[in-house]
Write a protein that binds this DNA or RNA. Sequence first.
DNA 1: AAGAGGCCCTGATAGC
DNA 2: TGCTATCAGGGCCTCT
Length: 287
Amino acid sequence: MPELPEVEIIRQSLNKKIIQKTIKKVIVRNRNLRIKVPLNFEKILENQIILDVDRFSKYLILFLSRRNKLLIHLGMSGTIHLLKYNKKNFLTNTSFYNSPKLPDKHNHIEIFFDKFKLVYNDPRRFGFFEIIKDQYSLEKRFEKLGPEPFNPIFDISYIHDNLRNKKKNIKNLLLDQNFVSGIGNIYASEILYLSKINPVKEGKSINKVECKKILKNTKLVLLNAIKRGGSSIRDFKDITGNKGSFQKNFKVYQKEGLKCKREDCNGIILKKNISNRSTFFCNLCQK
DNA sequence: AAGAGGCCCTGATAGC
DNA sequence: TGCTATCAGGGCCTCT
């Protein structure tokens, strides 16, 4: 479901609520996530204090008091929300979150704190919760992933060097997490539109000027999306129930058939399947 | 070795 | 109404 901006929004809202809180109890209702939740998962987490909530790419990282970490990935349909306990010690969702569209049957993991619980809901179960034993293992875990777009390593030379021998199209390259981490299907289309680059263009035919545009627009799009609370299509919300609004800023994503937003362009937004993912682009100004 | 395609899942929606 | 097909903010594995 979420790309880097949405995960960052979740991190921020989670950070405010669970830092320095102790995990009282953990219930796993379905271990069959993308990675099987191990049988000792609950025991490892219980009685630990959350020291920090960090993020790399589309992964959330909870730093725990015994120095291990909880790595969370939301896949395509994972959501996290906090439910407050009411006076009778029953659980109510009125204070923090309400979403009539999330049936309880997909609440796979619940982490209980003193006054609220964290609930992980994921209909498609492409997400996962993974215990990482220490800092070294964490770095090892991310070893093969490319830098985030905000990392100074991700500069024009890095982009150019990584594209120049690639036959793969630029859209798929932007989605390749081993090249750059955090871009997903929505933002790839948006970045290429702003850069006036056709999504099917081969990596090796992208020149330095275009690399510069990709660099600039990648950061621009992701930062603006974060600024606006992420993109709320299919009901994305942060853990306190606030919707993002970046979907209102989409130039091409899900804009098939509409006129190009550039005033000096008479193009039409087309939808094309690239490696089985929808891709949106202007037929005229993206060369 | 790079790159294309299949696959992991459920739910919503469209079309007959 | 009820079927079938298609499509979803992701990423890993296998085959060529």
